Amino acid sequence: MISSSLVPIRRRLALLACHLVVALVALVVIGGATRVMEAGLACPDWPLCYGSFLPGRQMNVQVFLEWFHRLDAFVVGMALVVQLAVAWWWRRQLPGWFLPLSALLLVLVLAQGGLGALTVLQLLPSGVVTAHLALALTLLALVSGSSQLLLAPIELRAFELKASSDQVSHGSRFEAAPLWWRCLAALSLLAVVSQCLLGGRMATSWAAQRCLEAGQSCQWLHWHRSAATPVAICVLGFVAIALLAGGWARRQWPLLLGLAALVSTQITLGVLTLRLGLSQPAVTVAHQLVASLLVALLAALLCRRQTCLSPGPLPVVLDPSILEPAHG
């Protein structure tokens, strides 16, 4: 039996997760823009900025980037607190995995705030900044994946309500994607995240600038460029295999083609960034934006579920208030 209150609460939580994905992508991109614009220490104190919530006299582009980055992180944290409260209140009508995941996400965002404080108080150490990025990408992947798992029952309900009369003897159910799909999606996600962290380590140590300007610390740039090709082959291979497999996998072609487009765009932006000698911050920030979108999309594809038909009657929702007594 499908509870009538289950679909609305899951729909709202799925909508919240989708908004959180957008906020987390913005958080990663603004963090990257803060580094590119050398604004990581624009606010010398933490958690306030120049001793106030909204600095007025000191406000400029760099201060605004750092201040807005913290504001976005605060909004994400508050949203996760609300999500945890809702998950606990509706715990009996939500999947068993959702409450522990909500608690884990809140713990991760608190740790993320702690790492953010260390980046300021310890004057932007490269290792801490890279860990800050790693935790942000982890949050992004978890929230994006959970949004797909929350949306599955909504799609199931819509499918059942629209079932044609010749299918009334069959029910529909959602199953995990094929094993090969999950393995390839997980491998692609791991490869993209690793490449992001390698690029983050290169950026936070200013290795690319030193290599292009003075020929120093070029190993980081070499590793990042060398890893780009196998990562792209891994993701594009996943897309090609899914399209050739047919069936449910091929029906995901809009997302798969979007994934291929993001990879192509990322390669172009990476080449353009080096050709311009890192002189155009907008290109560098766009490179980071596409990277975060790749992580979010791959996590969503990893957790995507397929619709299957199984023998058995459709589940019926019974409302006691509309039942009438029957007399013999």
Rank of each mutant, 00 (worst) to 15 (best):
L156V: 05
L156T: 05
L156Q: 05
L156I: 06
R157I: 13
R157V: 09
R157Y: 05
A158M: 05
A158C: 06
A158D: 13
A158Q: 10
F159G: 14
F159P: 00
F159C: 08
F159H: 04
F159T: 15
E160I: 05
E160P: 02
E160K: 06
E160D: 11
E160L: 14
L161M: 03
L161E: 15
L161W: 01
L161D: 02
L161G: 07
K162H: 03
K162V: 05
K162C: 00
K162E: 14
K162T: 06
K162R: 15
A163F: 09
S164I: 00
S164A: 12
S164E: 11
S165V: 05
S165P: 11
S165F: 12
S165G: 06
S165K: 13
D166Q: 11
D166E: 12
D166T: 02
Q167T: 15
Q167E: 10
Q167I: 04
Q167K: 13
Q167P: 02
V168R: 09
V168A: 13
V168M: 12
V168C: 04
S169V: 01
S169L: 13
S169G: 15
S169K: 06
S169Q: 06
S169H: 12
S169E: 13
H170C: 02
H170M: 10
H170F: 14
H170Q: 15
G171Q: 15
G171M: 09
G171T: 09
G171V: 01
S172E: 03
S172M: 01
S172F: 11
S172A: 13
F174A: 07
F174V: 01
F174T: 02
F174E: 00
F174G: 01
F174D: 01
E175P: 04
E175Q: 14
E175A: 13
A176L: 15
A176P: 06
A176C: 06
A177N: 00
A177H: 00
A177I: 04
A177Q: 03
P178W: 13
P178I: 08
P178M: 06
P178R: 08
P178K: 02
L179E: 13
L179S: 09
L179M: 06
W180F: 11
W180H: 12
W180M: 06
W180E: 09
W181P: 03
W181N: 05
W181E: 04
R182I: 05
R182K: 04
R182G: 06
C183R: 12
C183H: 08
C183S: 00
C183P: 01
C183G: 09
L184W: 07
L184N: 03
L184S: 10
A185H: 01
A185S: 14
A185K: 01
A185L: 02
A186L: 15
A186I: 03
A186K: 05
A186C: 07
L187D: 04
L187H: 03
L187I: 10
L187G: 07
L187R: 11
L187C: 13
L187S: 07
S188D: 01
S188N: 08
S188R: 05
S188V: 07
S188T: 02
S188Y: 09
L189V: 12
L190D: 11
L190C: 11
L190M: 15
L190A: 15
L190H: 05
L190I: 14
A191S: 08
A191Y: 07
A191W: 03
A191H: 02
V192Y: 09
V192T: 14
V192G: 07
V192E: 07
V192R: 10
V192C: 10
